[in-house]
Amino acid sequence: MSAGPSRPGGTAEWLRRDAERISGALPPLMAEAERLAHTVVAGVHGRRRAGPGESFWQYRHAVPGDSAAAIDWRHSARSDSYYIREMEWESAQSVQIWADDAQAMDYRSDAAPRSKADRAALLALALSVLLVRGGERVGLMGSAQSRPRPGENQLTRIAMELSLGREQRPDYGAPPADPLTRGGRAVFLSDFMGPSADLFDAIARAAESGVSGALVQILDPAEESFPFDGRVIFRSMAGVVDFETQRARALREAYVSRLAERREMLAERALRSGWQFLQHRTSESPRKALLWLYMAIGGDR
């Protein structure tokens, strides 16, 4: 597929400004998402969950598998049911984000405002803004900032990493083999057009560390609709793949079918691994994907 304009050059200031803009618009959007609105508007990370802590959160009905020691007998004595007293989790969560910067991500058709790489970088930084300001630790995989850290300085460092990019980039990307924080979360932002085995290996490594997360497949609208006709030369961004056809329209049905199969494969593997999956087009507003990510990483499915 011949490429449109490549990823535009930019600075950390430009990228962070855009990330701040779309993340700053989340509170009114969160007002429509009842579970998270009050915590986001109040400036608190909207992901209350049970775990070690000193603050009481809620009572819940005991279920098979709960130990007798966990039952609140005083509260249970007031009814004919057994209740578990849950405390609110108080430790910060670690989230590591991979924004695919392979050459395939540079593709942009006339139907999209920016490339897939730009959208991945913007979502990565905007999500980092929300997480850090909610008291969480964030790291950018494949960079010097892979280790999750809190604070505004980490946001600046991540913005610089996303803006500068790498000199040597492969045709298609794969999640880097960075150490993952045990029990943390991970977010992979990519077109996932490369070998699926690399992605599945990364998810398996994450599972070994007790890490779950979210996959966001970012595609250009032309990659979904396949609007090509007549003689077309399809060439990968690095020139590794080169294919010429005189009847591009005749390939559309097979192409769309293969793309749907890959999407179903990604969604199925995500479900089996306890991850979540989203398909996002670069012609869509990034706010919708950012809201989905913010909710998905919280664990309140």
Score class of each variant (00 low, 15 high):
Ser2Asn: 12
Arg7Val: 12
Gly10Pro: 06
Ala12Ile: 03
Trp14Gln: 15
Arg16Met: 09
Glu20Ser: 10
Ile22Leu: 08
Ile22Gln: 03
Ala25Pro: 04
Pro27Ser: 06
Ala37His: 04
Ala37Val: 03
His38Asp: 15
Val41Ala: 12
Val41Leu: 11
Gly46Lys: 04
Gly51Arg: 07
Gly51Thr: 09
Ser55Cys: 15
Phe56Val: 09
Phe56Cys: 09
Trp57Lys: 07
Trp57Leu: 11
Gln58Leu: 10
His61Arg: 14
Ala62Phe: 03
Pro64Ala: 01
Pro64Cys: 02
Gly65Ala: 05
Ile71Asn: 06
His75Met: 11
Tyr82Trp: 15
Tyr82Ala: 15
Tyr83Phe: 10
Arg85Tyr: 03
Met87Ile: 13
Gln93Val: 13
Val95Arg: 02
Gln96Arg: 04
Ile97Phe: 01
Ile97Ala: 00
Trp98Leu: 04
Asp101Lys: 06
Asp106Ala: 10
Asp110Phe: 13
Lys116Ser: 03
Ala117Pro: 00
Ala117Cys: 07
Leu127Trp: 10
Ser128Tyr: 03
Ser128Glu: 04
Leu131Thr: 00
Arg133Phe: 06
Gly135Met: 09
Glu136Tyr: 11
Arg137Ser: 03
Val138Pro: 00
Gln145Lys: 11
Glu152Val: 12
Gln154Arg: 05
Leu155Pro: 04
Arg157Tyr: 09
Asp171Phe: 07
Ala174Tyr: 00
Ala174Phe: 01
Pro176Leu: 02
Arg182Ala: 13
Gly184His: 03
Phe188Ile: 04
Phe192Val: 00
Met193Arg: 10
Asp198Phe: 09
Leu199Ala: 08
Phe200Ile: 09
Ala202Ile: 03
Ala206Tyr: 03
Gly213Phe: 02
Leu215Arg: 01
Pro221Trp: 00
Pro227Leu: 01
Asp229Pro: 11
Val232Thr: 10
Ile233Asn: 15
Ile233Met: 15
Ser236Trp: 02
Gly239Lys: 06
Phe243Gln: 10
Glu244Ile: 06
Thr245Ser: 07
Gln246Asn: 12
Leu251Lys: 05
Tyr255Gly: 03
Tyr255Ile: 04
Val256Asp: 12
Ala260Ser: 09
Arg262Gly: 05
Arg262Leu: 05
Arg262Trp: 04
Arg263Val: 08
Glu264Gly: 10
Arg269Asn: 07
Ser273Asp: 02
Ser273Leu: 01
Gln276Leu: 14
Met295Phe: 14
Ala296Lys: 04
Ile297Val: 07
Gly298Leu: 06
Asp300Phe: 14
